[in-house]
Nucleic acid binder design. Sequence first.
DNA 1: AGTCATTTCGGAAACGTTTTCGGTATTTTT
DNA 2: AAAAATACCGAAAACGTTTCCGAAATGACT
Lengths: 340, 340
Amino acid sequence: MKHYTIKDIAKKLNVSISTVSRAFNDKYDIKKETKELILKTAEDMGYIPNPIAKKLSQKRSLNIGVVVPEFINEYYSEIVIALQEFLISKGYQVLVMQSDENEEQELINAQTLINNMVDGLIVAPTTGNRNMKYYQDRIKEGYPIVFLNRIEESVPVSKVVFNNMKWSFFATEHLIRQGYKKIYHLSGYKDLSVSYERIQGFKKAMNKHHIPKENYKIIETGLLAKEGMEVIEDLIYHHDVPDAFFCVNDMVALGAIRKLKDNGYKVPEDVAFVGFTETRMAELVTPQLSSVKQPTFKMAKKAGELLIERIEDENAPIETIVMNGEFNIRQSSVRESSIL
Amino acid sequence: MKHYTIKDIAKKLNVSISTVSRAFNDKYDIKKETKELILKTAEDMGYIPNPIAKKLSQKRSLNIGVVVPEFINEYYSEIVIALQEFLISKGYQVLVMQSDENEEQELINAQTLINNMVDGLIVAPTTGNRNMKYYQDRIKEGYPIVFLNRIEESVPVSKVVFNNMKWSFFATEHLIRQGYKKIYHLSGYKDLSVSYERIQGFKKAMNKHHIPKENYKIIETGLLAKEGMEVIEDLIYHHDVPDAFFCVNDMVALGAIRKLKDNGYKVPEDVAFVGFTETRMAELVTPQLSSVKQPTFKMAKKAGELLIERIEDENAPIETIVMNGEFNIRQSSVRESSIL
DNA sequence: AGTCATTTCGGAAACGTTTTCGGTATTTTT
DNA sequence: AAAAATACCGAAAACGTTTCCGAAATGACT
C-alpha cells in the first residue's frame, strides 16, 4: 500500500514527470487528452500529492497559523472559529496552537508554524511579552503577520484591537450613573495590554465624575473565576465590600458573584456587577450579567483579511483597526431589577 | 536577510554538507571540534534549519495533529490543553484543527494534517460519521491514529472513551431516588455515539426502577443552551413540564433553566436538573448544577500515550480504554436544598 | 613496518515536487 | 511549399535536508 508519486504515474504512462506535474497545475502547456488521461490514471491509482515536497519547491502552503494565548475562555474559541470560517472560504486551512498563557510556549508555537511554512501568522500574544524581537525580525524579513489584541506598540505590523478604554469607560460610567458610590475594578493582569486599557477607561470615568480616590480601587486579578473568588474572600475578611464591581471579564465576575452569594450577599441588591468580553453565560446566569460585547467575528474576519492582503501583496499598507462593541445592560447592574 | 542553508555553512567552512548535517544530528561520526565549530558558525550566521526539507528526507515531523469537533464547549478546549501539555513533554508539538461539527470539514482537517506529515493523529469525530472509510484506509496503511469519544465500533483502532452509559445511569437513578416522578432527558443528537450511550443509561435506570413509560421521555436536542431553551418553550406551550431534567450537557441544562426561570418556575423547587460533562459553570451558577464530571485530563493524556506507543512501535496493541468519572450532586437536583 | 580497526569525512543519491529551457511536432501564415 | 508561429513535451536543475557508501586519515597492534 505504498504511496504513489508522480514518477510512478509518469512511468506507467510513459510520459515525463514534468508532464504529470503539468496535468495537476494546469497553468502550463499540456494537451487536453493527455491531461485527462493523467488525471484519470492518477485517480485510479489513488495518488495523493505530497504537500511537503510541494512546499519545498514552491513557496506557499495555503496554510495559515493562528497562535492564541488560551482557549479556555470562550473568547479565543470564537475567534478561532470565525477565523477558520473566513480563511477556509479564501482557500486556506487553519492550524491552531495555543500558548497556555506562557511566553515560551508562544514562541515555540510561532516558530513551529513558521518553520512549517504557513503562509502567514495571526498572533494574539500572551501577557508579557518578550517575544517581540522574534516577531520584529520575521516582519522585517517580510513575513506576513497580523496581531490581534494585547498589542505592543513597538512592532510595525497590522493589528486588530478592541477599543477597550472607550467601552471600559462606558461600563464604569453606567455604574456611576446607577448611583453606586463605591466601585472596585477587578483588572486582570496589569501587564496585559487589554487590562491596562480597561484600567485607563475606568480611571477616566472616575475622574470625569469626580469620584474621590477612597471610593474606588483597582485590584489586580487573573482571568479565571477562581481569582474572582479569592478577591472577594479577601475583601470580606477586611470588611471592604463595595457597592459595585467592574470586572475584566465575565468569568472573574461570576466567580466573585458566587463567593458573595455564598456569604449572604445579594446581587445586584447589595453588590452590582458588570463584566467584559461578554460570554454566552451572561444571559444564562441569575441575575443576568451586564457586559461589554466584543464583535468577535468581525474582529477575526478583519484580521484574516489584513493577513491575506499582506500575503498577496507584500506592499499592502500596515493598518491598525480599532473596533467597537456594545454594552448590554442586564439585571446585575441596575438598581431596580424590576424595571428590566 | 535571506535564509542560510547547510550549503552556505559548508561552503564557508570548506566542509561537505554531509558533515554539516552530521553536526546537527549527532548520531553520526564527527569529530568533536568540527562539530562545535559548525554549530558555532551556524549560530553566528543565524541559520535556521528547514523542517520541510527535513520532513521530506526523513519520515517524522515531531508534530501531532488533533482534530476536534468544536471547541465552543469548554470540554474539547480542556482536552486540547491537556493533550498539548502531555505531548509537549514528550517532545512533540500539537497542531489543532476544529471541524465545527461538520463532517466534510473534519475530513479536510484530517487530510490536511496527514498530508502535512504529522506523525500521528488524535481524532474526536463529529456527529455522523461518514469519514470512517478514510480513517480505515489510513489505519490499514499503518498510520497511527487514536480516537477519542464518539466512536464507531467498526474501526480497529485504539480509543479512549468515557463510560457514558454507566454515569448516565447513576445520574438518572439519583433523580429517581430523590423522588422526582416525571423525568425527561434532553439527549443531544441521537446519532452521536455519546448521546446514544447516555440514552441507554437513562433507559436502564428507568427500567430498573419500573418507571412507567408515560413518566419519562427522551427529547432530542442539540448541544447548545439555545436548544435547551427551545425545548422548554415547547414543553411549556404543551403544559408538559416534568419534575426533573437530565441533560446531555451543562449548556443545554443552563439554557433550559434560564427559560424556566423566565417563566416563573423555580429551580430546583419546581423542576430539578442534572447536567453532564461538567463545566466550570456548574459551581458558579445559582443554583449550582449537579453534573457528571469527566476526567478530561486523564482521558487526553491516555489518548496521547496510546498514540505515542503506536508511533514508536508499529505493533503496539490496539486498546480501548473506558474511563469513569464522578457524579457531583449539587443544589439543582436535591429536594431540600437546605441540606447541601 | 605492515596489517587492521577506528575515526572522520566527502560524494552522491534520495525524498517528491515545480519550473525553466530548449527541442520536436504540428499548425498557421505567406 | 517554405517559413513562421504555436502547441506540446522531455531533460534537468532546483528546493534543503538525510544518509548510504566508500575513502582517507589516524591510531593500535603485531
